[in-house]
Design a protein around this nucleic acid. Structure first.
Length: 546
DNA sequence: AGTCCTCACCGG
DNA sequence: AACTCCGGTGAGGACT
């Protein structure tokens, strides 16, 4: 379908993706969709353009194919990430016409239903969309793994539906509880919008400890104050200050924590982002190159633990909070097909404890550090010491991430299991970032440290990105299985999903989540023994989940 | 007055 | 134990 003002033009597609009937013009887009409940999948330019209008009218669709999202994924796969991704641009490329640039992204407006990416000034004709869609089908065929690439674009289109529906539903948010928390932590607010009482007191304590007026919110001032006390600090990061023995350290660290709450999740945040008992962030599936989601405005993926007390289920409802257990090592087991790691990941129990029980690398904490260190490309510390043992024990798993790191160091791209592709070295923007061009020695030093950084990025990309692949499929499955319930997906954060549902649905929802994880594992990675369990908590308050 | 950069925190 | 991977956010200050 092609939206056209309030109306739309539609044509049925056959199994080959080509038109299989006459074009129909409908005066009302919402009615056009509502009156066709049998349509299994809608192909359209942009979910963000169309779906919020449908949801506002109470119309849901089963599945969709988002042409502009697919364009971005296909461009990435083809190593052409810098090219414009709008449908208009894709159509222009097909005709060898001048390609219009994508318009800049708009900032999020609290309470707005408008999509973030809105590149289309005039509606693109249905015929153009059909050509772009047909071209995209051919490009899927040309991918290294066409079936996986199709699964990826389908899964992310489903993610677009989930994102719009979660925005619509909103996360239940009690403004009164939030205010209580703020008052407990920060004390009274003073007229004029200055620091609340507790922050002012802590700033006074810091000044008293130094014997002169110090602004704790100005790192340069704090560094100078420590220098005056004969203590050299490289930065004022918390972990560095924690090592310093000085009476100002304690109030400084407490100040930083509270200052963060005040500025990022304080009263003005509440004023801006909570309406009618709901917090409605704009989710952007695939917002990061690795496929993790981002949100725009409201800091939805960084809600501090203390603030989660304000997330409270409605009367008679519950929050089902589900956290995927050790998602990244399980994904590494599945994508590397390492026999030993698959065996360890083939149980629902804690994976790090299992590693430790099998005599690997000391206690649970050490086992965890060793494994995560390998995935992150750790360059120092405890994890590194155990890398040799890890390599001996799980050779294919370590070889998998090592190969990804090598590719990155050599400037090559890497792909997730389903085919999402990392940017090439020339697209990372490092070259333009002001590299000193002095003598050859300096240049060599920089470029090798840059290469190592790229290696760490691609090493992590294949795991984190494949985990994002899995999470998309899990969400799609969960959306499908809860479609007949009153339950609503209300939050998603990388490896964690929250469903808001009536008390009587909590058991069915819990089951649906576990089944969605299992199904996603099989769909994404094929037949492996790897399990994808969740820790599930049924709570009234988000803060009680952990 | 508006834009860009740095810093440091939050989350996974 | 150390600060390695991915991001968003706001404040302050430097700059235009």
């Amino acid at each position: 379908m092609a939206a056209d003002g309030d109306g739309a033009r539609l044509v049925p597609l056959g199994p080959d993706g080509l038109p299989a009937g006459p074009v129909v013009t409908e005066p009302d887009l919402v009615e056009a969709v509502r009156s066709r409940p049998a349509v299994g999948r809608w192909v359209w330019r942009s979910t963000a353009e169309i779906y919020p209008r449908l949801l506002a009218a109470g119309v849901r669709v089963e599945r969709c194919y988002d042409i502009e999202d697919a364009e971005l994924l296909l461009l990435g796969h083809e190593g052409r990430l810098g090219e414009p991704r709008s449908a208009a641009a894709a159509w222009a490329r097909l005709r060898n016409a001048p390609v219009p640039p994508d318009p800049p992204a708009r900032a999020a407006v609290p309470g707005s239903q408008a999509p973030l990416f809105e590149p289309q000034p005039a509606p693109l004709p249905l015929e153009a969309l059909l050509e772009v869609y047909a071209g995209q089908q051919r490009r899927h065929d040309a991918a290294g793994h066409p079936g996986r690439m199709r699964l990826l674009t389908a899964a992310e289109s489903a993610g677009m539906l989930v994102a719009a529906e979660m925005h619509r539903a909103g996360l239940p948010w009690r403004a009164d509880v939030h205010r209580e928390v703020l008052h407990e932590l920060l004390g009274e607010r003073y007229a004029g919008g200055g620091e609340p009482r507790r922050l002012a007191e802590l700033a006074d304590e810091v000044s008293a400890a130094f014997g002169r007026r110090v602004r704790p919110d100005l790192p340069a001032d704090v560094v100078k104050a420590f220098a005056g006390a004969g203590i050299k600090v490289r930065s004022t990061r918390r972990w560095e200050l924690a090592e310093v023995d000085h009476p100002a350290v304690d109030p400084l660290i407490r100040y930083k924590k509270l200052y963060r709450i005040w500025t990022a999740h304080g009263w003005s945040w509440l004023q801006d982002w909570v309406r009618d008992g709901r917090f409605r962030p704009e989710y952007q599936p695939g917002g990061t190159v690795s496929g993790r989601w981002t949100t725009n405005g409201g800091g939805a993926l960084q809600i501090p633990k203390v603030i989660r007390r304000a997330v409270v289920a409605d009367e008679g409802w519950r929050l089902v909070v589900a956290d995927a257990d050790q998602m990244e090592p399980r994904v590494l087991a599945a994508i590397s097909r390492d026999r030993g790691l698959m065996e360890v990941a083939g149980h629902d129990g804690d994976l790090y404890t299992a590693l430790s029980d099998r005599g690997f690398s000391g206690d649970r904490a050490h086992a965890k550090l060793a494994l995560l260190g390998a995935i992150y490309g750790q360059t120092s510390g405890d994890g590194l010491k155990n890398l040799a043992a890890l390599r001996r024990r799980f050779p294919r798993a370590v070889a998998y991430v090592d190969e990804a790191a090598k590719a990155g160091e050599e400037g090559r791209r890497v792909r997730t299991w389903l085919g999402r592709t990392s940017p090439g070295a020339e697209e990372t923007g490092v070259e333009e970032a002001g590299i000193p061009q002095e003598d050859d020695e300096d240049r060599g030093r920089f470029s090798s440290s840059d290469a190592r950084a790229r290696g760490r990025f691609t090493r992590n990309f294949v795991v984190q990105g494949s985990a994002a692949d899995w999470a998309l499929l899990m969400l799609a499955a969960l959306r499908r299985s809860t479609a007949g319930m009153r339950a609503e997906l209300v939050f998603f954060q990388h490896d964690e999903v929250i469903v808001h549902c009536p008390v009587e649905e909590t058991e069915a929802v819990t089951r649906a989540i576990r089944e969605a994880g299992t199904l996603a594992g099989r769909l994404a990675f094929g037949d492996t023994p790897v399990r994808f369990p969740f820790t599930v908590a049924v709570v009234e308050r988000y803060a009680d989940a952990k």
